[in-house]
């Protein structure tokens, strides 16, 4: 059996928060937080620990923590990506994967045979000791691969992990939604749409889908592959 891999983060890294939904079924995390443990161990579903370190570092350069607020680190973007790659999306379960595989014109989009799991694995190898580099060197390394399918994919997933509903493991404590003033899913704006016409919506405490409904919502990435 495969040895279980963990992402080890300082407990305060994720802004001191993790929603229960982020790590469903992993009670030791909550315990770790209660005990104010210095580190938290996040079980990985796809990445190895060194792979997670590379991807985490990439997402932090793409959407950095800086003077403008929280970034990929606080949002737990790498956790979001790990879950996506472990699920049907990572395995191309819902992509047409019959051959023959032929190269085509850009108008036909990605026609490659590699699924997202393979694209990540190969891309991470190419980056070598990326996680150990300084920020400026990391940026140079990313500029060099900016046009690749791998980089484009990581960039897309970084934004997804920043601004997704927390039920997918990213946007922890809705730090992404706070950055942009997104209130989360709200069922009724009928009486506000004219009131706030040309007027900024007030800053409200965002609410996740599970908070709104008061129960667990099944995420597609948890569907058996």
């Amino acid at each position: 059996m495969k040895r279980r891999e963990f992402l080890i983060l300082p407990a305060r890294t994720l802004g001191g928060y993790l929603l229960a939904s982020t790590l469903a079924g992993e009670p030791f995390l909550a315990q770790a937080q209660q005990a104010k443990a210095p580190d938290i161990k996040i079980p990985l579903k796809f990445f190895t620990a060194p792979e997670a370190a590379v991807v985490s570092a990439m997402t932090e350069r793409i959407f950095p923590t800086d003077a403008n607020g929280a970034g990929a680190r606080e949002a737990g973007v790498v956790i979001f990506i790990d879950r996506q790659l472990a699920g049907p999306y990572g395995h191309d379960k819902y992509r047409y994967t019959k051959g023959p595989w032929v190269e085509s014109i850009p108008e036909h989009g990605y026609q490659g045979q590699s699924n997202p799991r393979q694209i990540y694995r190969e891309g991470i190898i190419q980056l070598g000791n990326f996680a150990a580099l300084g920020a400026a060197e990391q940026d140079q390394a990313l500029i060099a691969i900016e046009k690749t399918t791998f980089f484009q994919m990581v960039r897309t997933h970084t934004l997804e992990g920043m601004f997704c509903d927390p039920l997918h493991g990213g946007n922890a404590d809705m730090v992404g939604w706070r950055l942009i003033g997104y209130p989360g899913p709200v069922m009724a704006y009928r009486h506000e749409i004219e009131k706030y016409r040309g007027v900024p919506y007030p800053k409200v405490e965002p609410q996740s889908l599970e908070q709104l409904l008061g129960r667990k919502v099944p995420a597609w990435e948890d569907e058996p592959v």
């Binding site: 379960k93 819902y94 047409y96 997804e160 601004f163 889908l209 099944p218 995420a219």
Partner: peptide
């Protein structure tokens, strides 16, 4: 449709669409 106010699964992964792996 109570569960579907979720951009990742519905807008980005097309959870309501035909399974394109079976026919396209």
């Amino acid at each position: 449709y109570m569960d579907d106010m979720d951009e990742v699964d519905f807008s980005l992964r097309f959870r309501m669409m035909q399974n394109i792996s079976e026919e396209t």
